[in-house]
């Protein structure tokens, strides 16, 4: 699936623009615990989280996530937006809860 398809499936609003919305996404790490995301062995993945803090962006940078989706209608602060811009990490928000987001992605991954 492509990043823009993921964004579409999650009805997400793009807060920090993706340079390459056609990048291939293989998987997603969905967690509110950053350590869980840090422990993932996934590659070519996006982060889905309800946690809104600058550390989400730093974590995404460390693990090389392709994008961050903030779920449950959480909106990032301007500082978080700035961090995402500095690290070139596409940032999205969706009003969908975490579980519903995962269900949608599962459906998208297995047509």
């Amino acid at each position: 699936m492509l990043l823009r398809e993921v964004a579409q499936a999650l009805e997400a609003e793009e807060v920090v623009r993706a340079e390459d919305p056609d990048i291939e996404v293989d998987s997603a790490a969905a967690a509110d615990l950053l350590s869980d995301i840090l422990a993932t062995g996934k590659e070519q993945f996006v982060i889905l989280t309800g946690l809104v803090s600058p550390q989400v962006i730093r974590t995404a940078q460390v693990v090389g996530a392709l994008a961050v989706f903030l779920v449950r209608g959480k909106h990032p602060t301007q500082e978080i937006i700035g961090l995402a811009q500095a690290h070139g990490i596409p940032l999205y928000t969706t009003s969908l809860p975490l579980f519903e987001s995962c269900v949608r992605l599962a459906a998208l991954a297995k047509p």
């Binding site: 301007q78 500082e79 700035g82 811009q85 500095a86």
Partner: peptide, 17 residues
């Protein structure tokens, strides 16, 4: 003004790095 705050945060981060 909000965009400006985000840009400042981005600049700060890049300088820090």
């Amino acid at each position: 003004e909000l965009n400006h705050i985000a840009e400042e945060a981005a600049r700060r981060e890049i300088a820090l790095l």
